[in-house]
Design a binder for these strands. Structure first.
Lengths: 342, 342
DNA sequence: TACTTTCGTGTAATCGATTACATAATTTTA
DNA sequence: TAAAATTATGTAATCGATTACACGAAAGTA
């Protein structure tokens, strides 16, 4: 029905050329004021809409940015995306979502697809199990597409990142458990090819060290971020000759599983056993036995990633800016670990 | 660094024209087999990538589809988007995300932006407070862009929809509460300009009617989908001369708020008071006092929306197909309402 | 051999907007 | 008033791919 109106249609109607129309609409200073007004009025009257695809082809900029996450249906990633979208919306960028489902193959596919679609930038949380094949990332950078890692980062030249201080997060949580009087503190970690898990682990270790508590290898379990995995893992811990009296889990879901299992065994939380998680998922606050957790301020992380992108996108591409933003984690102390204050 | 390779570069290298290259790459049957192979091999060797923007401009199809939701950081919407993305990924579509934050203005802006960006289709959950100004929707349809509503729908000619049977969901939840012996059942509803809330409400009413229970206006509270709103609302209910003994809430969050408030007042759940929510948010299952809730199968809803889009996108645009898919809700009975079986 | 088909490829327009360069129109300066 | 400077607009190329049409060459037919 609605035939598309182009600048040529406007030009024809006004007996001028498309070039003049284009200049008028773009506020080119060389255009006579009267002409500009006439063109703008006519364009509005004809319901002209700029063809973004033509513009994109000509300029090489699509006004789209790509976001790659392991999955979107997690509160953390969804919140980051929300932050990105809100920050970029006023600048006219659209956000394209891709999921990797923790597959390297999908991650590489997504990177290529986004580059092919000529997005103006890519923000992503990398997938673990790195085969150390950085070619897909290099390809992005060679095309001069700004690449920004958030949360899950990797050391690649030319890539900016926005992360939280996972070491500090791990340290804070562990220190808190120590302050509550726990001395046998277990740890659930995750995929060691991801820095976030390594750093939380290191923070945990350091807190033990700083407080004169011996680190025990058997207290560390590498587990998936899932409720069932948490149940199974705490099960193993309780079979040790000296079972732990506290747990710092790198995952809220695994922490929840642990709590469920402990309750079934009638182990009293926090009196006999303290638990702290990581991510501050909404449910940690909602539970009757609310769960202590480290907040990663995902909304802020998303906004910050977007800002870093905006800084980079207009810079001359000869100078490679590499910005590393590290946000501060915040420990939310709740019933699962607070023997005293609740 | 990496200069972009076009079909002209390939043509030049092989001393043929770009037209031939294009045809060879597109498996045009008029091309000699030898030429085709040579072109394909050369293209690969030169690391040729088709410029999607040029293709999009020529064809008028961007291979992007737009998704508009009130907000992305809700498990329900994120899951729907996940479903859409997974279903569309194999077909080469990219998903662009927009948020309305329940603002009509933003909704209209998003619709226009997406149409301007020439997406090949739009899937959305409408925002309430309809000023009955359908012009933004009409504009989409006039541009022959398939428009599909999911979950929150509106009656507009030419728009397909994928929803759940909210009436049935409301009926099931209410009937279940009746079966548990409750006779004074309150209801939290929402924005009455949204069909989902009206229909859940109607299902609630019908269940009462079918079981000989008088409907009482004062048992219905229109509340936001938030924990605090739930607390306040249940507070009002308890001040009635005959306070209810059960609640069917159209929102899990409000249901949670109600439960928190009831507990503070030492009202025993489910013995003295039964609660059922709607949406089956993850936390409803995680709580120690798990919350009965109606599941909307968001993943399936997303996939189904994508399928409806795929059906429509290739049809000749002379025939307007309008498909209405209604998914079945599923009641998950949990501790907050099960007096007997838990 | 001459004439039609068929096949493979080239030519050039097209999608819609931007922009370097050229040129016409107007104003300024001498 | 004529030349110079300025201003506004037109011309045409460009971004990269697709495709209707044209055309030469090869193959088939009489």
């Amino acid at each position: 029905m609605s035939e598309k109106v182009t600048i040529y249609d406007i030009a024809e109607k006004l007996n001028i050329t498309a070039a003049t129309v284009s200049r008028a609409l773009n506020n080119n200073p060389k255009i006579k004021e009267a002409t500009r007004e006439l063109v703008i009025k006519t364009a509005a009257a004809m319901n002209y809409k700029q063809n973004k695809l033509a513009l994109a082809l000509k300029s090489g900029r699509s006004n789209n940015i790509g976001v790659i996450v392991p999955r979107i249906d997690s509160n953390f990633f969804a919140s980051v995306i929300r932050g990105i979208e809100e920050e970029l919306y006023p600048h006219g960028y659209q956000v394209i979502i891709c999921q990797t489902h923790e597959s390297i193959k999908r991650e590489n596919e997504n990177l290529h697809t986004l580059v092919d679609a000529q997005v103006d930038g890519i923000m992503m949380s990398v997938t673990g199990v790195s085969n150390e094949n950085d070619s897909a990332f290099r390809n992005v950078l060679e095309k001069n597409v700004p690449l920004i890692f958030f949360d899950r980062s990797k050391h690649i030249d030319g890539v900016s990142s926005v992360t939280i201080n996972d070491f500090k997060g791990g340290y804070l949580a562990t220190k808190h458990l120590i302050d509550e009087g726990c001395r046998n503190i277990a740890h659930f970690s995750g995929d060691q090819s991801l820095d976030i898990f390594k750093n939380r682990f290191l923070g945990y270790k350091q807190a033990l060290l700083d407080n004169g508590i011996e680190f025990k290898e058997e207290y560390v379990i590498y587990t998936k971020s899932a409720v069932d995995a948490g149940k199974e893992s705490v099960d193993k811990l309780l079979q040790l000759e000296t079972p732990p009296d506290a747990l710092f889990s790198s995952s809220d879901f695994a922490a929840l599983g642990a709590i469920q299992e402990l309750k079934e065994r009638n182990i009293s939380i926090p009196n006999e056993f303290c638990v702290a998680g990581f991510s501050n998922e909404p449910f940690t606050k909602f539970m009757e036995l609310s769960i202590t957790s480290v907040d990663q301020s995902p909304l802020e992380m998303g906004k910050m990633s977007a800002r870093v992108f905006l800084e980079q996108v207009d810079k001359t591409d000869t100078i490679k800016i590499e910005k590393k933003v590290v946000l501060a984690p915040e420990l939310h102390i709740r019933k699962s670990s607070a023997k005293t204050n609740f």
